[in-house]
Design a protein around this nucleic acid. Sequence first.
DNA 1: ATAACATATGAACAGTTGTTCATATGTTAG
DNA 2: CTAACATATGAACAACTGTTCATATGTTAT
Lengths: 118, 118
Amino acid sequence: MREMVEHCDELHSHPQLVDHVKLDMPDEEDLYDLAELFKVFGDSTRIRILYVLFESEMCVCDIAALLSMSQSAISHQLRVLKQARLVRSRREGKTVYYFLADDHVRVILGQGMEHVEE
Amino acid sequence: MREMVEHCDELHSHPQLVDHVKLDMPDEEDLYDLAELFKVFGDSTRIRILYVLFESEMCVCDIAALLSMSQSAISHQLRVLKQARLVRSRREGKTVYYFLADDHVRVILGQGMEHVEE
DNA sequence: ATAACATATGAACAGTTGTTCATATGTTAG
DNA sequence: CTAACATATGAACAACTGTTCATATGTTAT
């Protein structure tokens, strides 16, 4: 049976470097989680929600109004953001207010914006 | 005809805040580009490629060998990374070496990892 | 020229994702 | 209790994505 993966017969890099790279790679699980995290940032609706929350905590229907989207769509996306621990929420009567969970969001979006604007 | 979007009859937030948020939102185009950028980070194969390139520039087939993936799959992903200006390449004979384009990658992945590891 | 190697790319397919619609849950006021 | 409002959620569907496979392009050596 043939190998599933084809690549060059010999590594071009020094074996020493290859070993070094392998050792320095984060755990497979962390890499997966990291990709999952960035998937969350990879949607402009969610990015817009995060930018809204930069200014102030806000309830679902106000976010929907601000972004001209349905309550359902926003609610679905807030759930994704919450599962990624990027936002948190508090209830006040009928209303649920969402707010940013921590400051990584600002740094990550800031760096991303820098890159995009270059 | 009904409105496509349903939300609360009145904004709960002060109109003043709503205006402020609207003014502070980046351009629609930048938000879109930003989401596109993070989509690129949102795949564990591409994340792994970037981590490999943290250590050293490397040719396609060595990356494929290191990650136990096909040459084709890696080449497709390198193209995505290149289009996002996250990596660049140089040719040396038959071999094409890829390397990180700038340091935003390190900061973004670093912050993401911090968030994930919390 | 041809052969061998490294990389790139187009088509196809399965798997994933974001929105809508309908409806359920939770809360408050009467 | 019921009505009204705010939010959450499951199903469905179209749109998008990552890999494989086959093949094309580019480079070097002979």
